[in-house]
């Protein structure tokens, strides 16, 4: 089997693998942000922002779980939105005159920028692949499966008798006018 044939013979495409990788990365980063926020805020000169970093961690975990689900599209676009928020926060830290660690912030901005690009590429590809009901809407109004109009086929299997073990537990409530069922026994209290 040649290589290209092997690739075409997989249901899992490159974008699916990338989505999966981003999902696990998101969960790992989210846990790190939740459990050790100071290890991020200190090198970035953003002390005091730990609650915000924890909240971002929770967001990362949610996006990561979504990216590992059967349809990762929404989660990946959520990651792109989250990336934009992170970039905005880092840009604000870079503009802060009193921040003594602007060099680190610059590195972080570049890293988040690269991941944003990756998220964007992955989300776009996944969106196209997972597009629900994409393509033309065919007309199946001639696919009855019956030799005659459906109305004429109603009750054609009238020769079929429901097996005893598959009869309804109660008489059909729609049976009109309905058989009157009388109690076979009455208790002294009626």
């Amino acid at each position: 089997m040649n290589r290209s044939h092997s690739y075409m013979s997989h249901s899992l495409h490159g974008s699916d693998r990338l989505a999966r990788g981003l999902g696990w990365f998101s969960i790992g980063l989210g846990l790190y942000k939740m459990l050790a926020p100071r290890k991020l805020t200190e090198p970035l000169g953003m002390e005091g922002f730990e609650p915000m970093v924890r909240a971002c961690g929770a967001r990362e975990i949610a996006c990561g779980v979504g990216a590992l689900s059967t349809n990762p599209s929404l989660a990946l676009w959520s990651r792109v939105g989250g990336d934009a928020m992170d970039l905005a926060a880092l840009a604000a830290a870079l503009r802060d005159k009193h921040n003594p660690k602007k060099e680190n912030v610059g590195v972080a901005l570049a890293a988040v920028g690269a991941i944003t690009a990756l998220d964007l590429v992955c989300a776009s590809r996944i969106k196209k692949r997972y597009a629900y009901q994409a393509g033309p809407t065919p007309d199946y109004s001639d696919r009855s499966g019956f030799p005659r109009p459906a109305e004429a086929m109603r009750g054609t299997a009238g020769d079929f008798e429901t097996p005893r073990d598959m009869r309804a537990a109660l008489p059909s409530p729609a049976k009109s006018p309905g058989e009157r069922v009388t109690p076979t026994t009455r208790s002294p209290n009626g």
Binding site: T137, S141, A150, G155, G158
Partner: peptide, 23 residues
């Protein structure tokens, strides 16, 4: 089997039209 009316619930138009074709 002779039901008076059969109703099918979905949100995919072509599947609904196929079901409608079947009665």
């Amino acid at each position: 089997l002779g039901a008076k009316q059969v109703i099918v619930i979905d949100n995919v138009p072509e599947r609904l039209s196929m079901a409608q074709a079947g009665g």
